[in-house]
Design a protein around this nucleic acid. Structure first.
Lengths: 114, 114
DNA sequence: GGGATTGGTGGATGATTGTCAAACCATCCC
DNA sequence: GGGATGGTTTGACAATCATCCACCAATCCC
């Protein structure tokens, strides 16, 4: 499995707080964040994320916003993309922010978030 | 000083996380938040906030967004308006969020922020 | 009362954004 | 090779938004 490849994303030091907040200031992307809160890798399929009502390309757009803001990282393996939360990087850059966000989560946190 | 009057704002329980993040996902409003982080009341004058480059009405607009999101409260006294951070309400609703935001502040925190 | 001060309202405008649809691309598999 | 699968890109469109401008409203002070 050496065909791993990461989609472009900002370096940890370049993650900007306002940009992150702007990225998370959208209900769809907040739901994505909650889905990713378990720390596991997730595919991009809308049906796995409670986003059946949205078009593929819309979900793709939102995931790009999250990735470019530095919230998530995307690994390419074959025709699948695996998205994961950049928890360590975010905790380094903004200590306590992610915990506070997930604690105050507006929707039910799926399973073992922490 | 009984002519105090509060501009309309959401009740504490109605403050929505996504709405707050959306409000703070703007560089101007983030700067306002940092100005208000001292807990004191502030006037609306752009020159007191490092926003000389913005029109009065633009600043007024941003302050309305913050107030309607539940981030700030505005007291009207005569021809002056005094804006203050709703720190207690925000801490109640989203424990740790404000602390995390102010700790990771992107701009120099003005004096005794904590 | 009359002028100055403080700040908001409403309209206009250009930019950004969320969404969908259709086309496209790479990969896996039969 | 040729479908089928998983996802991105591009274009279009409506909605939202940030900004400015001109005008307005209330208050303070002489």
């Amino acid at each position: 499995m050496t065909d791993d490849e990461r989609l472009p994303q900002p370096a940890t030091a370049d993650i900007d707080l306002v940009t992150v907040l702007h990225a998370l200031g959208d209900p769809v992307r907040m739901r994505l964040l909650l889905s990713y809160a378990d720390g596991a890798e997730h595919s991009c399929a809308p049906r796995d994320l409670g986003l059946e009502h949205l078009h593929k390309s819309t979900v793709s757009h939102h995931m790009r916003v999250l990735r470019e803001a530095g919230v998530t990282t995307t690994r390419v393996a074959g025709r699948n993309r695996f998205v994961r939360l950049r928890r360590t990087d975010l905790d380094t850059r903004f200590p306590g922010l992610l915990d506070a966000l997930l604690t105050s989560a507006p929707a039910p946190v799926p399973a073992a978030a922490r």
